[in-house]
């Protein structure tokens, strides 16, 4: 078919439908290798710190402080990525850094206040298993972007 024979109204209609779809704001933020690296690294470091929970807190205070700063940094990074990441990934990080959130910062807070500065072996083992899953949810949200083909480019 000759393009010149296609009615101009039809081309305009297709163009309008296409423009409406293209004109929508991006609904999800793209995959970030940096966010993935932050989450996997912080997971490993957090679990290593929790494993030391049966030892005196004062011995690991510096490591704990540094880890919390890096987790806060990951939270700030997620907040600045875009609208969708601010409503999902950043809120996930907010739980990790909340001193009452049942996650990393809450653990450090309790460890600091624990009698003798030590947590029980039973607690450390049980808490580690839940904390690992918490970090997995952050990592899976990020890898989901890649699986959905939502990659910057």
């Amino acid at each position: 078919m000759n393009l010149r024979r296609v009615p101009i109204r039809l081309i305009a209609l297709f163009g309008l439908v296409f423009a409406l779809l293209i004109g929508c704001d991006r609904l999800a933020d793209p995959y970030s290798a940096e966010a993935y690296k932050q989450a996997t690294s912080l997971k490993a470091r957090s679990l290593a710190l929790v494993a030391k929970g049966t030892e005196s807190y004062s011995k690991h205070e510096q490591t704990a402080d540094l880890l919390l700063i890096d987790a806060a940094s990951a939270h700030e990074f997620a907040k600045g990525r875009g609208k969708e990441a601010a409503q999902s990934a950043a809120k996930q990080w907010a739980i990790i850094v909340d001193p009452d959130g049942g996650s990393l910062a809450d653990f450090v807070n309790q460890w600091r206040k624990a009698p003798g500065g030590k947590m029980s072996k039973f607690f450390v083992e049980e808490f580690s298993s839940v904390l690992a899953l918490q970090f997995d949810r952050i990592i899976e949200l990020e890898t989901g972007r890649k699986a959905a083909g939502n990659v910057e480019g």
């Binding site: 049942g102 949810r137 949200l141």
Partner: peptide, 21 residues
């Protein structure tokens, strides 16, 4: 109590993951 809060945190993280996906 912290272990109980950790389960609450996990439930919230699950919900946020589902919302993001």
């Amino acid at each position: 109590n912290l272990l109980i809060r950790s389960l609450e945190g996990l439930a919230e993280l699950n919900a946020l993951k589902a919302k993001g996906l």
